[in-house]
């Protein structure tokens, strides 16, 4: 099973290298360990995260693609769907099966048809359009819903922080 996961991860890395999507750079941290990837995600244009480059880490299970990877931002993030410690809460990264809380359909959750490219594109889409109904960060969800200007200001401050610019 680990061999199959390794072969698939190698194929996906080759695909990402040959045809990289816009605004996303991803690859394994080292060639000795293909189950831990590092990704750089550019903030989508026209949003409060524009101009930012956010580093993230993906940890793949040994039975990938039957189980989803775990994704975590390694920089400070303030977003309704990202926990305070950086863990990403997005439907396609949730384990397969029906959601016990009833928010997500089984078709929206993890499936082996998904790939690293699709995961990262979904995260970019999540940055552009947060989902405030099921918030991982409640403070960010409330602020995004009720005090948008303050949310945008905090986001721009974080963008400058990730770029190493003075606030």
């Amino acid at each position: 099973m680990a061999g199959s996961a390794l072969r698939r991860l190698m194929a996906e890395y080759k695909q990402l290298t040959l045809d990289p999507p816009e605004g996303i750079v991803a690859g394994p941290i080292s060639e000795d360990n293909f189950f831990e990837w590092e990704a750089l995600i550019a903030g989508p244009e026209g949003t409060c995260f524009e101009g930012g480059v956010f580093p993230a880490r993906l940890i793949f299970p040994t039975d990938y693609p039957l189980s989803p990877p775990k994704m975590k931002f390694t920089c400070d993030m303030f977003h309704p769907n990202i926990f305070a410690d950086g863990r990403v809460c997005i439907s396609i990264l949730h384990a397969p099966g029906d959601d016990p809380m009833g928010y997500e359909l089984s078709a929206e959750r993890w499936s082996p048809v998904q790939s690293v490219e699709k995961i990262l594109l979904s995260v970019v889409s999540m940055l552009a359009e947060p989902n405030d109904e099921s918030g991982a960060n409640v403070d960010a969800a409330i602020m995004w819903r009720e005090q948008r200007d303050e949310f945008n200001a905090i986001a721009r401050r974080l963008v400058r922080k990730t770029l190493g610019l003075p606030a």
């Binding site: 039975d63 039957l66 189980s67 397969p96 099966g97 089984s106 078709a107 959750r109 499936s111 048809v113």
Partner: peptide, 10 residues
């Protein structure tokens, strides 16, 4: 066997 769901998710 892993998902225990006998329908195609797509």
């Amino acid at each position: 066997s892993t998902s225990r769901c006998t329908t195609c998710e797509l």
